[in-house]
Nucleic acid binder design. Structure first.
Lengths: 299, 299
DNA sequence: GGGCATCCATAAGCATTGATTATGGCTCGC
DNA sequence: GCGAGCCATAATCAATGCTTATGGATGCCC
């Protein structure tokens, strides 16, 4: 086992002070306390480290060597404290974020810009992935935060992760501008039972299918794409209809489509997932605050 | 005050083992012991250092930074132990010796050669000075050992130093070869009352004067020199008589002088003086053993 | 899907560590 | 020679720190 570092630092203090009594005063202790620590240290190393004389102590050769190491240890401890203080006060740091595409296009850039403005040396590393992969990255420790969405419930349930919902966004029905129903005030999904449907990721598809089932039909899924630009282009040229969340239409809006938001189309909830405890890491916490739209620390 | 280095090393062990339980096993402790230390460390630094999950722990960014420092601290402690082991086992080291001239010419070279043969990387630094200055160097911390002599009693008495006599050497009366008394079997000092006398250092002079006084006369001191070569040359050409210790005649013997050792001329004791505790410093102890003529460690 | 193994945290008990006060030896300076 | 510095040692007591005991949570396996 390694030498007792505490006693090593006490020894260093004695060497610096020039006497055991002076070191004790500097440490706010009594003289015997320091004396006993030194005796224990010398017993442990098996060699006299300092020669006691009236008027103080003087280092032996082994003592002088050990003092060099003690200085190094003290330096490292000091550096450790400084580094931690830097990280705590956000003078530096890093937060790794996985986000889904439409968020990466809208919410994330704003949050990152806000964080950079407040803390220029806190770096954000963004990975754009769909929610399931984001959770995988989180579990493997490759990212600190995952910005994900779910149509209902907790998208990270049962995975040992923490889910913090941020907001619910409406889901819109997307039709070509020249669609017969494009001008109607209210649209019933059942009216689109005969249309070809375009769906995105597995969860979006499940949501669409569930909505249609509730409306009494099974949609005919003709095209599949995660890309909200691709999907809107397909809709615009009349290849089908689709459902898209508000943020996807916020990030990009094809002029050839119309979007109708109705409560009956449901909502999509997005939020942050992280490993328990990660929210207390300063850089991570700061990014969470930015994403939640409250850049300044609460309180 | 600095961070608790002990807990830092426990944290390091946890990071290395991958889990608190594994670290506890490695340390021969129970899991709660390590858990509590980590909790205390995190409380002290104010930042989570690792995220607990089933299957073990994972470092946060602050934890990763702190681990680097912990490694440095452990390295320094390890190096400290190695260096001390080197010094203890005489794989390296240094002993600073102050010795008076005739010893420096005879006893010391043999001792240094012996030490070097046994421990090639233990360095001896020799300073040739007369005993009083040697004690001064000892007190000021400039040497570890002083090889000194005295005509009676402890030459370092009352100075807070340790006196270890090594041997008593006879004192010889030194006459020119052509002196009328040169052939006599026994010589009484009183017979030399009319001769010019040559004396050396203050203590040697005091010894000579005391001897002459005991013989009933006050010597006429004509020449003063510490240098036993100079003194013998003066005697050889008939400029006076003198008293010299055996070692001075052993180091150099002028053909033009005769030396008579008699109990009545007294003895000169030489030995080692050191600060209390210094005899336990390995390099110093080894040199003491060599000087005492017992190169191998006792026992 | 329920039981089991493993992870971690917390609480309470107790032994050791580590501080204290008290005392004594030693050297130096007045 | 006496007082004021050093330092070491012994004895006492409190706090630290390790223990056992327990509970919550996750993941694996049949």
């Amino acid at each position: 086992m390694l030498m007792d570092a505490r006693r090593l630092l006490i020894f260093r203090e004695v060497a610096r002070a020039g006497s055991i009594s002076a070191a004790a005063r500097a440490l706010g202790w009594t003289q015997p306390a320091v004396s006993q620590h030194l005796a224990a240290l010398e017993r442990a190393v098996g060699v006299p480290l300092l020669l006691r004389g009236p008027g103080g102590v003087e280092l032996t050769e082994p003592g002088a060597r050990l003092l060099d190491r003690a200085d190094q240890v003290a330096l490292q401890l000091h550096l450790a404290e400084e580094e931690l203080a830097d990280l705590t006060s956000l003078r530096r740091g890093r937060a790794r974020l996985a986000a889904y595409p439409s968020a990466a296009a809208t919410l994330v850039p704003r949050a990152v810009a806000g964080l950079r403005a407040r803390h220029p040396d806190v770096d954000v590393e963004l990975t754009e992935v769909e929610p399931p992969e984001a959770l995988g990255l989180l579990e493997s420790g490759d990212v600190d935060l995952a910005l994900v969405f779910g149509y209902d419930g907790d998208p990270a349930a049962g995975r040992g992760l923490v889910w913090r919902p941020l907001a619910a966004e409406p889901v819109a029905l997307v039709l070509p501008v020249d669609h017969p129903l494009a001008g109607r005030r209210r649209i019933a999904l059942a009216q689109l039972a005969g249309e070809p449907w375009i769906v995105g990721c597995a969860r979006c598809r499940a949501h669409a299918v569930a909505l249609c089932a509730a409306a009494g039909f099974a949609p005919s899924v003709r095209h599949v794409s995660d890309d909200y630009v691709v999907v809107q282009n397909l809709v615009a040229v009349g290849l089908g209809v689709t459902l898209l969340p508000h943020s996807a239409l916020d990030a990009y809006r094809h002029p050839g489509v119309v979007a109708r938001e109705q409560a009956s189309f449901g909502t999509r909830t997005y939020g942050i997932v992280h490993r328990p405890g990660a929210e207390r890491v300063p850089a991570t916490a700061a990014l969470v605050r930015e994403l939640a739209g409250q850049g300044a620390p609460p309180g």
